[in-house]
């Protein structure tokens, strides 16, 4: 078990290898325009695919032999954030997805308030009401800065622009 814990990087290296093989296999499907003088649109992808595959192989060998380079600096720090790490990360990604889905439904200010509040809570903020007020303030200020000062359009949602 410990051997594997020190070698989680194999997962990333495996993905890299898969990406390299995908590039090599998909490159022949790129269309070539007739009358190509020298190298066409397939040459460079072949190079990149080969490079990725080689580097991934090198990385896999390196990790299997000597483990990850990851320094464990967390130590015995007191836990200030809720739940296990994987749950916090998944939670933040989920909040971000909700944010993206809310954007065109409720407009920017509400979507960003939800995002800020959710992320802050997952990262260890402890006072829901105060956090909510700060989230609303940040979202409103961002909206004002981008829409009114920089004139970058953002979705208004059903309540119009004045939240």
């Amino acid at each position: 078990m410990r051997w594997f814990r020190n070698r989680g990087e194999l997962g990333v290296a495996g993905l890299l290898l898969a990406a390299g093989i995908y590039v090599l296999l998909d490159t022949p499907t790129i269309r070539i325009t007739p009358g190509q003088l020298a190298i066409g649109p397939r040459f460079f992808p072949y190079m990149v695919g080969a490079f990725l595959t080689l580097v991934a192989a090198g990385l896999i060998v390196g990790v299997v032999r000597s483990g990850s380079a990851r320094p464990d600096t967390d130590g015995e720090a007191p836990a200030e954030r809720p739940g296990p790490a994987a749950v916090r990360v998944a939670g933040i990604v989920a909040v971000a997805v909700v944010h993206a889905l809310l954007l065109n439904l409720t407009g920017y200010v509400i979507a960003a308030t939800v995002l800020f509040w959710g992320a802050a809570t997952l990262l260890g903020a402890r006072r829901p009401v105060r956090d909510g007020i700060i989230a609303l303030a940040v979202a409103s200020a961002t909206y004002a800065l981008f829409v009114w000062v920089l004139q970058v359009p953002l979705p208004n949602g059903p309540f119009g622009g004045d939240v």
Partner: peptide, 12 residues
Amino acid sequence: PYLYAGILTFAL
């Protein structure tokens, strides 16, 4: 928590 929530908001 506020700092990183803010970074996330601006990034998205």
